[in-house]
Design a protein around this nucleic acid. Structure first.
Lengths: 272, 272
DNA sequence: ACATGCTTTTGAACGCGTTCGAAAGACAGG
DNA sequence: CCTGTCTTTCGAACGCGTTCAAAAGCATGT
């Protein structure tokens, strides 16, 4: 109800505590993120911004009420009291209506997770909290999230979690996982290179969880929750083991693989 | 008329066809599986079966020529000399036209991979061969495969690799990976439980490769090929290490996780 | 006041996947 | 040959996402 448009202006990452220096000198790295995408024109007047927000809010409401596919552009336009053409003037395709929602959820998740793990130091617990927090944040949208997941899986779509357009949201999420790690008892025991690498890997862990969640049809996605409870201690154990001598070679291989093949595809500037 | 790959002229990609075993035997090569899905009626007459095949082949040809999305049902119908309604009589939705293609490719891949690794015993090499073989088999379809990948990612779609409808193709693929393992020098060194589990895990490895491949835009998907070359020895090393004492607990955890959470979702009858 | 150049808004129209009622065949029993 | 019951075929029509040319608003210069 109230939540969709409320924090519109100051949505951005609220600063990643300055740990990340590679943000790049883009025109806008934080707040207006999604609001300018998918439309032909940038906001000139105030009325314009209002119309855009109205359309977006109406769309989000209907998506939740009827699901993504069953909500027609005509219905959105009618309900918002504008013409279809006008809706397309602000959002050049139906899928662009999702991006705002997507960014918002990422932000809410990060905030909630930070709150919840504030008083916990153990790494596996922090990780579990972060992941469970995502499940809770996303719970209301499970049904229609699954519906637009197919859109997100399109390599050519800007909604793909790997796309450039998703970079802000992804950066926010990765920053969260960096905090998960760095605020834990585990971080001091690891070499800095690994600490640098792990946040992205943990984000991939989240992506796997999301994949599992999308396919999960159990009530309250209980199965995914159990999956998180089981997989997080294992992840912690693997990371922990990586400190021992025996694993040097394999850890180095894994590092290389991730650095050379995974990170470049998810928007990090390739190190080469 | 019957071979889908033959019509493609653009993709050179080193001849894999030399050892290929697809003799010109009949209209469909040995995978009857999908032919009965997605339609309202089962084949009564012979003419019926003919019409169905005609539509399917026409569709596949057009998909390769123009891509999935740009091929309209009307075009398929016209080109095949039938009406739109008739096409829908046999394939209740456009996406069902893909399933036949999907099954066929899985079968061709398995055959090609078996051929290629016949004289190799080392596990990591066999695995690399199997994966590379997939890339070669799928190469002609890279462009339009990426287009229908979004459909495959829909949890509610029967095209999802995890869906029940995909079970036959999946079973074929898993069986291949079982051969990859059991025909290798590694299998005898592992306990039977692990041998039982690994084929599915290796199939997941393929799924990851496919994901990577779909997003890969480098010429000849060279990046994915490099990814395979790098990741297979690592997989081999991990499996190898699992034999040592130190890893007992973590290997057991991993086994449990896979058995309880992964296999059940990909169509194995849950062991519980 | 008028003209000019924009942003914003409109609604008809297009192409698509899909549906549906009905026509056309095919075939058995009378 | 006629009739009834399937199966197969047809093509018009529906609802959808999207496009587009034109209208309407709006600010500014003359």
């Amino acid at each position: 109800m109230d939540d969709l448009a409320a924090t519109n202006g100051t949505n951005g990452t609220s600063g990643t505590s300055g740990t990340d220096g590679t943000e790049g000198a883009g025109p806008n790295s934080a707040a207006p993120s999604a609001e300018a995408r998918g439309s032909r024109a940038q906001p000139k007047t105030d009325k314009s911004e209002q119309t855009r927000a109205l359309i977006l809010e109406t769309a989000m409401r209907l998506f939740q009420e009827r699901g993504y596919e069953k909500t027609t552009m005509r219905a959105i336009a009618t309900e918002a009291g504008v013409s279809v053409g006008n809706a397309y003037y602000y959002f050049s395709a139906k899928e662009f209506l999702i991006q705002g929602f997507y960014d918002r959820m990422t932000y809410d998740h990060a905030a909630d997770a930070r709150n919840r793990m504030a008083h916990t130091r153990e790494f596996s617990e922090r990780l579990e909290i972060a992941l469970t927090s995502w499940l809770d944040t996303a719970a209301p949208y499970h049904e229609f999230a699954a519906q637009f997941f197919r859109t997100a899986a399109d390599p050519t779509s800007s909604l793909s979690p790997f796309s450039n357009e998703s970079h802000p949201a992804r950066a926010t999420a990765v920053a969260l996982f960096r905090e998960v790690l760095e605020g834990s008892d585990l971080a001091p025991k690891l070499d800095t290179e690994l600490v640098e690498l792990l946040p992205d890997v943990l984000w991939l862990h989240l992506m796997v969880v999301v994949l599992y969640w999308v396919f999960d049809r159990t009530p309250d996605t209980e199965r995914t929750r159990e999956f998180v409870r089981r997989s997080t201690p294992m992840a912690a154990r693997v990371i922990n083991l990586s400190r021992y001598r025996v694993f040097r070679p394999i850890v180095r291989d894994a590092k290389g693989l991730i650095q050379d093949f995974i990170l470049p595809t998810i928007g990090r500037t390739a190190v080469k």
